[in-house]
Design a protein around this nucleic acid. Structure first.
Lengths: 201, 201, 201, 201
DNA sequence: TATGAATGAGAATTCATTCAT
DNA sequence: AATGAATGAATTCTCATTCAT
């Protein structure tokens, strides 16, 4: 009774949706959310602007979908670190998982860093996004306390600053940023007797 | 026709210009550059939108002026650290100067962090802005080499990540961020035998 | 390919068509013709928007079909009054038939009253619709002349105004409008010696 | 300090506003509210579409302004009838004032009649508009009771139906409608001993 | 210097309609 | 017969910018 089968339709829809999301992600990342027009997204995706509205309620909904998509992956990865049985392994695991996440979601991070200063936009993105930053600091602080790092509260701020900062610097110039070496250096600092002796020599 | 003297006019001009810049800074910081209208800036400044065009060539020029204003101060402050005679004092001086700069230019940093992922905007801001980030990393690397820090290249990345990251985290929540303590912790890490022992014990 | 017989298909077609017309009537009546989208009609009818185009040439054709459907009934009812053998019975018969027609076509009247001021829409609805109003006045005038009502031309205007007006007022609030009593009052006025006493002479 | 004087500006603004309102009234009346585009209004007014938004919040606000403008005049005229000292004069005064109002606001009535079936539009027009019809019926009923007309409640419905209906029929064809004679006939009916003779006895 | 009316280009969004299946 | 993905034109609205005064 249906022209295409339901499955075929679902596939077509999924493909178009993915193309729109990719196009939007690309443009939001390079031009910024506010400076990207719906027309430009549709163009980049190779479809008409009207079609975007069959898939999303509007530009804001596209942004939302991007966040849902990427944050789910990010949180899943962080959750994996949390399942390490030995407390000493959690921080390295988390740091190394960042090494994997950041390049995989390079454009998403560009969007995120371009928006996170604007509270009105964040408000439209649901509470989990707004709390994202705070949640990470709390996790880091817990990990540091678990390995009895002194002044864990302050150190957590510094550690988070390092992760956040290097993530951005990588995103700004992924071709040249020595992400792996920087993260390994970071792992060293927070590993084993590392907090007794800062250098591995 | 004009009841004002030339000098009075100059004063009025300067005041209006400053009001426009402050208004723009405030709005760019909270709403983002692209999402801020010229009308909104003029409104916030308490003048007509038309008047903005007597002071600036357009919205982009206002952004430019904001960068000139703030970057000049930032660079002057960093230059002061550079004049420390003892190489060991330069890094602490630079870190502590950040402590002063960041709160003073809180809104500027919000604008900067909201824009720096967008290469097209940066291009309109002149080459000095685009090179800003790289220049700082080079300076940091130099300072670390001066104190014979091993792997200064990688460490400079981490150090910059920390500075950049904490600056943003402060800007995101200035009321609660323990900026001073975080920076002092940072100074400790990079002072004296600090690179031998990461903790102050 | 087709598991239905031709007869079954015809039945299904008729049902779908009726559902579409009902849905359109409902929506045109409450939102107005121009403000009702084809999608909304299809939704309300529980079919896809595409299917509407298998039954009608477009949105305007749906409106046309609604008019054909309802006007046919209206004119048939009025024609019945015309067949009264006694001239004195015609007017009461017509008035009482209105009592029956109006509630039966409540939504149609809402559409009609919402559109009849717009000459461009009327033009697309065929000449019979445009002449509808004038035809009724002529009939009323004839009926009044038949019972030798003085100034039948002017009185026909007033009588039509009453019919038209009460029809609208009923449609605006069918739950509370005392349609029957109002019409009976109207019948009284135009019955028996009423028009002798009715004038101030 | 201002380029044009404040008064000059006010005049220019008022002129443009009036042109927009006239253009909108004209188009709403002939094409209907929903079918009239903002572009068409601006075109008809001889200004750019953007300018409309310097004067009104949007299309709905234009409609609102039209209602405010016309309803104020209508209600003022009806209020004048209410000030007649002799109860017997009130109804004739009200009827004759309609004779004056209707042609003066011909287009407004076309808009009103084209919209009043759509409750969602009315809701945007403020409560006074929604209650407009009911308020008139109540007034008419009161006037009829004052002159001891029997069954004033039902008669008020009929009287209102007549007024409303003839108003519409006039609006539909102002060039040929014998408005004055119809209203005089109406005045006769409700004047003097008419209501004694008017009943079917 | 300053205003604010005015514009035109472009933004987001809606919608009647088509068409492959 | 029926679906729903897709389109393109139109619609509402925003906004940077100009200009007469």
């Amino acid at each position: 009774m249906s022209p295409r089968t339901a499955v075929q339709n679902q596939e077509v829809r999924a493909v178009t949706r993915a193309r729109l999301l990719n196009a939007a992600l690309e443009l939001f990342a390079t031009r910024g959310y506010a400076a990207t027009s719906v027309d430009a997204i549709a163009d980049e995706a190779g479809v008409s602007a009207g079609l975007l509205y069959h898939h999303f309620d509007g530009k804001a909904a596209v942004l939302n979908a991007i966040f849902e998509q990427s944050l789910a992956d990010v949180q899943a990865t962080f959750a994996a670190a949390d399942r390490e049985s030995d407390a000493r392994d959690r921080l390295p695991a988390l740091l190394r998982s960042a090494l994997a996440i950041v390049p995989r979601h390079r454009q998403f991070w560009a969007v995120w860093y371009g928006l996170r200063m604007q509270k009105d936009v964040l408000r439209t993105l649901g509470p989990s996004v707004a709390q994202f930053t705070k949640a990470i600091v709390r996790t880091l602080e817990q990990y540091l306390e678990d390995i009895e790092w002194p002044e864990a509260g302050i150190e957590a701020r510094l550690l988070f600053a390092q992760i956040d900062g290097l993530c951005q610097h990588y995103v700004l110039d992924p071709a040249h940023y020595p992400l792996e070496r920087v993260i390994e250096r970071l792992v060293e600092r927070y590993t084993g007797g590392a907090h007794h002796a800062n250098r591995a020599h």
